[in-house]
Amino acid sequence: MSGFGVEVRDLTARYDTTVALDAVSFTIRPGVITGLLGRNGSGKTTALSVLAAFRRATSGTVLVDGEDPWENERVLSGTCLVRESGDVALDQKLKETLDFLGDRRPLFSRELADTLMDRFELDPLTKPNKLSRGKRSAFGVVVGLASRTPLTLLDEVHLGMDAPSRYAFYDALLTDWLEHPRTIVLSSHLIGEVERLLEDVVVLDRGTVLTASDAETLRSGGVTVTGPAEAVEAFVVGRQVVARQQLGRTAQATLVGARDDDASRARQHGLELGPVALQDLFVHLTDRPVPAIPEESR
């Protein structure tokens, strides 16, 4: 199993007069872990809901494994969307939910589900409405990973989980994906934590696609330069600087827009070049200028 591929072309989704997605286009490669990144209100949840046929597109084309997912039994049986705190019956014991999924999901792994239940310290006889927010999110992770569907959509499933639980989730996701490759789309705002998992990235902002590429290509669009503060400042003159740090006489600047001569210039001035964290690039891409304060209001 290599997973379902996704093709989205000119997708628009409206809620009454609100345009959640405005003619967006992107591709999700089969068998790849893709990060769907964006600030709150960017359209991430709407996009995933359309892919999972939870809601219908206003216009445009959506193909999952080459077919429209809307009311498509084959595609839907191979798609799992888990949103924050899971999408499960609140008054049904966790064990009963796992039994239900085991009967209806052909690739569902009860062995993996039980292993994750132990890892997240979830009592199978407990009902979701008796769990904390973090534990409910952990159960959503159990459902999403154990289903092993060809298209697995995880929408901010880590919200409410503490740091050890989140890292246990990331490790479990990567380990099981390596053993059972499938298409996973991970929506998250904790980019610094999840970027090691991502091979491709789609960045949404206010209902539009800012960029869609493999993560390495996106990272290579920027560079960090480190060294003596004066030399760093001279190096970045006329460049787009998105972050600065300084400790004593040593400074680091993060630039967007790498140049062919950066390496030679850095060597001439005794500077070190390094990669840019995906988090820094994301902040830059989605940066929104602060409105100026009117003179009369100062």
Rank of each mutant, 00 (worst) to 15 (best):
T224D: 13
P181W: 08
V157E: 06
V185W: 09
L159H: 03
P291G: 09
L174H: 10
L271T: 04
G221K: 07
V236P: 02
G207W: 06
V290Y: 07
D260F: 08
G257Y: 05
L159E: 13
V237H: 03
H284K: 09
D205T: 10
V194A: 05
G227E: 12
V185A: 05
A277F: 01
L178G: 00
E296K: 09
E156V: 05
P150W: 11
V201C: 01
H180G: 02
L173Q: 05
L273D: 07
F169D: 04
A229E: 13
H158V: 15
L278G: 06
E216V: 15
G248A: 12
V157P: 01
Q240A: 11
T250G: 00
V202K: 01
S213E: 15
T208M: 08
D200V: 04
A292H: 09
F235S: 02
G221D: 13
S188P: 05
A215M: 09
L271K: 03
L159A: 13
Q246V: 12
G207E: 06
T183P: 03
L159W: 00
Q246C: 09
L159Y: 06
L190V: 08
D287A: 15
L210G: 07
A253W: 02
R182P: 02
T208Y: 01
V232G: 00
L154P: 00
A243E: 10
L218M: 13
I293K: 13
D171G: 06
Y167E: 15
E156G: 01
L186V: 14
Q268M: 08
V225T: 04
Q240W: 10
H180D: 12
E195D: 14
A229L: 04
G270K: 06
L154Q: 05
R267Q: 14
A212T: 07
L285P: 04
A172D: 11
L197R: 03
A253H: 03
A234M: 10
V236D: 03
P294R: 05
L210C: 11
Y167K: 08
P275E: 15
A292Q: 11
E230Q: 12
E296V: 14
V236R: 03
W177N: 03
F282V: 07
I293H: 07
E216L: 13
D171P: 04
G221P: 07
H284R: 07
A251D: 08
D162K: 07
L153A: 09
G257A: 08
V203C: 01
R298P: 00
V276Q: 06
D287W: 15
E195Q: 14
T217Y: 05
R206S: 14
D287P: 00
A253N: 01
V194E: 01
A258C: 06
R288Y: 13
L285A: 15
L247F: 11
A292S: 14
R166M: 08
T286W: 12
D214A: 04
D260A: 15
R239Q: 11
S297L: 15
L273P: 03
R259I: 10
A168R: 09
E193H: 02
A172G: 08
Q246S: 13
V201P: 02
D214Q: 02
I293S: 10
V283Y: 11
A258Q: 08
F282P: 02
L151K: 02
V256L: 13
D214T: 04
R196E: 11
T211Q: 09
E199R: 10
S220E: 15
V236G: 04
Q279V: 13
R265D: 09
V236I: 14
Q279D: 15
L159D: 10
T152V: 07
V203W: 03
A234G: 10
